[in-house]
Amino acid sequence: MNLIYPLAVPKGRRLSCEVCDAPAERVCTACTVTYYCGTVHQKADWGSIHEKICQLLIPLRTAMPFYNSEEERQHGLQQLQKRQKHLIEFCYTVAQKYLFEGKHEEAVPAALHSLRFRMNVHGLNSVELVPAYLLLAEASLGAGIKDVRHRVWLVTSFTTDSRQIYFASCAFGTEDIRTSGGYFHLANIFHGLEKLELSDTLYTKASQIWHTYLNNHYQALSRARSQQADLLGKRFLNDTGLDEAQEAEAIRILTSILSIRESTFSKEPQKTILVLKTLSLLYFLMMDNSKAKDYAMRALGLAETYRSVEERRVIRNLLDLIYSDEEQEGHATT
């Protein structure tokens, strides 16, 4: 474990601690590609995960060799990504083992590595980061970490409910409406921590889950009407397929996201249109035509402003059904 002297650091390059991202002063002499702010974090990382992956980090953190052909280069990149994916799962499993044993402090560096490798493979804004953030939050909360430098990476306001929501996603799948609350909850946390790009990705994910679910019900209803499947001549009853609690959750999630979207809609209006359209579908299927029409008209206004031809067509079709229902309601009351 040698000290890193200033002259040994290339000009303009910043070396950061593996654990807390502070300026580094030490290097692991075994791999020479991992740096630390001091002995405390170096020992912590070694005891948690570094001893197990030390040599595996060398090919990941050194320049790729010269390849004679594009085919060889692509093969080299694939092997590099394969190693990173292996380390994602290995570090995650090690961190989980520590948590199971009640060793929260040991779990933190391993969870950090899993998160860092996920970022390298999936990008900074991917929902694939969520499991690692949850694991890291659980480890840090259990360890009672107070060091401000650690909080560069930590999300400290995760609750038992949010962890349970993630585990539910393992049972129901990542695209199920029962997991949308988890994405929404995490987005709120990241938004509060000003990790705006990640929160934006999670808000979009929650919106898309609800839109897909409600649009499937809407399309089934539209097909039934077009085929005149109601042989008894009765008016079709719209149905969300949700219970009252789920409908209330959908309204809460979507209206909250809409409020955020409308404050920044000029940057990405399509995301605002998506939420407005989803709320219109929700209220239409709940047979609240007044609110359904209001959200649909707002979506149409945005779509016309930003010249989205396909969106205009879809929204107008929805409005036609809403107007049709209103007419039937009018005839029923006369």
Score class of each variant (00 low, 15 high):
E175F: 03
L193K: 02
K195Y: 11
F158C: 05
L186R: 06
S157F: 04
L186K: 06
G182Q: 04
I209V: 03
I209K: 01
I189G: 01
C170W: 06
I177H: 11
S157W: 05
H191D: 12
G192A: 05
L193H: 01
H185L: 05
T212G: 08
S180M: 12
C170S: 14
T174E: 13
S207V: 05
D200Y: 13
D161V: 08
L196E: 13
D200H: 15
T212R: 04
G173P: 01
S157T: 04
A187T: 03
F167N: 12
R163N: 11
T160N: 10
W153I: 06
G173L: 07
H191G: 07
L196F: 14
Q219K: 03
H211N: 14
C170R: 15
F172V: 12
R151Q: 13
H185S: 13
G192P: 00
T179M: 14
W210A: 01
A168T: 15
C170L: 15
K205I: 11
A171T: 10
T159C: 11
F167R: 15
G192R: 00
A171L: 11
S162H: 11
I209T: 02
A168P: 04
F190G: 03
Y183E: 10
R163E: 05
R178S: 14
A220W: 00
T201L: 08
Y166T: 06
R163I: 10
F167C: 13
W153P: 01
A220T: 01
Y218R: 01
L198I: 07
H185K: 10
H150P: 02
H185G: 09
S207K: 02
I177G: 01
F184Q: 13
L214A: 00
N188I: 02
T179H: 14
S180C: 13
F172S: 09
Y183W: 14
F190N: 02
F158V: 03
W153H: 12
S162R: 12
S180N: 06
L221M: 07
G181H: 12
G182T: 03
L202W: 09
S162A: 09
N188C: 08
L202Q: 13
T179Q: 12
L193A: 05
Y213E: 11
I165V: 10
Q208E: 10
C170A: 15
Q164G: 06
Q208S: 08
L154D: 07
I177E: 12
A171R: 05
S180H: 09
T204N: 10
